[in-house]
Amino acid sequence: MSATEQRVAIVTGGSRGIGRETAERLAADGMAVVVVYAGNQAEADAAVENITARGGRAIAAQADVADERAVAAVFDQAEAVFGGVDVVVHAAGRMVLAPLAELDLDDLDRMHRTNIRGTFVVDQQAARRVRDGGAIINFSTSVLALALPGYAAYAASKGAVEAITLILARELRGRDITVNAVAPGPTATALFLDGKDEQTVAKMAAQPPLERLGTPADIAELVSFLAGPARWINGQVVRANGGIA
């Protein structure tokens, strides 16, 4: 495949966890990848090195996903280096857990800035610049269906992500661009495991009928499907949670 024919993916939150696994999976699928990171350049560079060591093409780009100028610059860079953008995976997110009555409102504002405004900003650039035949994939959470205490603010932000996703899919009528959201269940990432004791983790791992936590590779497999062959799945929220709900 020539460079001009190669599909190009932008992956936000690509320096670690699900985002990094997704970036490496899409590169393995044959895409050139822009690994977008907020602050951890070392991890983003490591992801790029892993991809290039396997013969793939990748670059790292820094951006606050809620900053429209920074996000536009990432798309500019993708177009300048790789020739365009075909797939956008918006995996960057922030999670702060506390009962509604106790949550610090500054934490609420920061979380919603990243999760809601960030999704809107990234999707806005994607809607303007993804080439026809492309895919936009956002991240929600299976917590929306589970209604777990402590997750009110986080789940509210992801409810907004689902609304944005479903409406954008319909606004892009005629472009042959799919827009979907992936809603992971409990997945063994640093974001999920942070602050949880072993008993809590074991209890959550036992909930799905498959009786384990998900892995970043489980989620990246679904993203790969939605980014590539799944052209008839559009305007959907796909719950990847081992059957938990």
Score class of each variant (00 low, 15 high):
D123K: 07
T119A: 15
V89H: 00
H112F: 15
H90E: 11
V88K: 00
V89A: 03
R113F: 13
D86N: 08
R110W: 14
F82H: 08
G83H: 06
F82K: 02
L100Q: 14
G93T: 03
A91L: 09
D104T: 08
D104F: 04
H90A: 05
D104A: 07
E102W: 10
L103E: 12
M95G: 04
A92N: 02
M111K: 05
R94Y: 06
D86T: 11
T114K: 10
L100F: 14
Q125H: 14
Q125V: 09
H90K: 05
L100K: 10
L97N: 12
H112G: 09
L100G: 09
M95F: 12
L100E: 05
R128C: 13
R94D: 05
V89T: 08
G84I: 03
D86H: 06
V88I: 05
F82D: 00
D107K: 14
L108M: 11
L97Y: 08
L108Q: 08
L105D: 11
G84Q: 02
V89K: 04
P99L: 08
L108Y: 13
H90S: 06
Q125L: 15
V88D: 01
D106N: 11
R117F: 11
V87D: 00
A98W: 15
E102L: 13
I116E: 06
V121Q: 04
P99Q: 09
V89G: 01
T119F: 05
A101Y: 12
D106Q: 15
V85C: 08
A101E: 13
D86W: 02
A91P: 00
D123W: 08
L103I: 15
D104K: 14
G83T: 04
A91E: 00
A98K: 12
D86M: 00
V121F: 12
G84V: 07
L100W: 09
L100D: 03
H112A: 14
V121C: 12
I116Q: 10
G118W: 02
A98H: 12
M111H: 04
L97M: 15
F82R: 01
L97S: 04
A91C: 06
A98V: 14
L100N: 09
T114P: 07
V88Q: 00
D104H: 13
E102R: 12
R113N: 13
T114Q: 08
V121K: 05
M111L: 13
I116P: 03
L100S: 08
M95V: 09
M95P: 00
R113G: 04
F120K: 09
A127N: 07
E102S: 15
A91W: 02
V85G: 00
L105E: 07
L103T: 09
